[in-house]
Design a protein around this nucleic acid. Sequence first.
DNA 1: CCACGTCACTTGCTTTGTGCAAGTGGTTGC
DNA 2: GCAACCACTTGCACAAAGCAAGTGACGTGG
Lengths: 182, 182
Amino acid sequence: MRDGLKSGCPINLTLEVLGDRWSLLIIRDMMFGNRRHYRELLSQSDEGISSNILAERLKMLVDQGIITKADDPAHKQKAIYSLTEQGISLVPVLAHMGAWGVRFLPVREDLAIRAEVLASGGPQMWAAFMDELREQHLGARPHAQKKGGRSVSEQMQAAFEAVCASRKGARKTKKAGRPARP
Amino acid sequence: MRDGLKSGCPINLTLEVLGDRWSLLIIRDMMFGNRRHYRELLSQSDEGISSNILAERLKMLVDQGIITKADDPAHKQKAIYSLTEQGISLVPVLAHMGAWGVRFLPVREDLAIRAEVLASGGPQMWAAFMDELREQHLGARPHAQKKGGRSVSEQMQAAFEAVCASRKGARKTKKAGRPARP
DNA sequence: CCACGTCACTTGCTTTGTGCAAGTGGTTGC
DNA sequence: GCAACCACTTGCACAAAGCAAGTGACGTGG
């Protein structure tokens, strides 16, 4: 079953590519954490991926056309991994998975805030975020106005820091006037 | 990995529940193929799940609150599995995964048509489909008008049969389309 | 009322995949 | 020149997947 496909069903094929414990976490880190190097993905991962698994998955994701690998011009032994359009197209999938996790699973508040922001922003915000990713990963030109001058990543980051601050201050005013999820 | 959570990130938690090769396929069959019994899930699966894996995953999905198990009143030795609201909430995730697969992977035309219909219908159609699932699985009352009198499952089924018919023109039916119960 | 098929699983065993620790050879900064 | 760093690779233990066969409760026809 290495390349022997169990069936041509789109959901099955998607699962054969991404249906393991690590691939989507790597993509998540590249998308939301802006990790572009092997070492960053290895040591800044919240879940502690091991080096052989990371190497194998990166290779597989490159083979599948979900990411690309390029030399870092600033550092000969480093490689830069970038999302392709195919990888960027996973934003809605990850957004929905995050929203589902936030709603039904015991998530940690600070780690959930990005998913909440993204979920509450809806498809419009996802599209804006995908444009930002195209800029960062594909070198595309920005073609959409940023709402209020803040990028989606900045909004997520700000919300994250706000939650961290309010957690630290135990009983601080909640700054976000963001609509709570249903 | 047994119960030890790697992190409280919503995407990671979702993957710990659903990030294996079979769970989402079982849910897909329950959603789109209306398989409600162990035997149906076992023998009508396109991918050929084995009995022990199916039994284990069903137990896990029940534990996670994604499905429920009940006695079949018509047949004492049968059990009926139903999606919970938590399971039904996976419709958008599956819809996006299907759409992604259709766009980027070598799907088989006839198996992809349902995903295409659902993707083109957008969030509105997903909501309608979720209402139909609430009827079938939770015994909820229909509370939305069906567009043109056709349910979403009927629309998907009709599109599937249309594709099968046009393929049959080219000689043979490979994988006989088994009609899902309406 | 009993033989036989069906039901939802279990069990035993082999094959495959995953995860950790340690190691590799090349590169960079001092 | 050499220690630290880089992206991996190797070896080995263990967990999960897969297959075949088995289990006992149940249902059905004669």
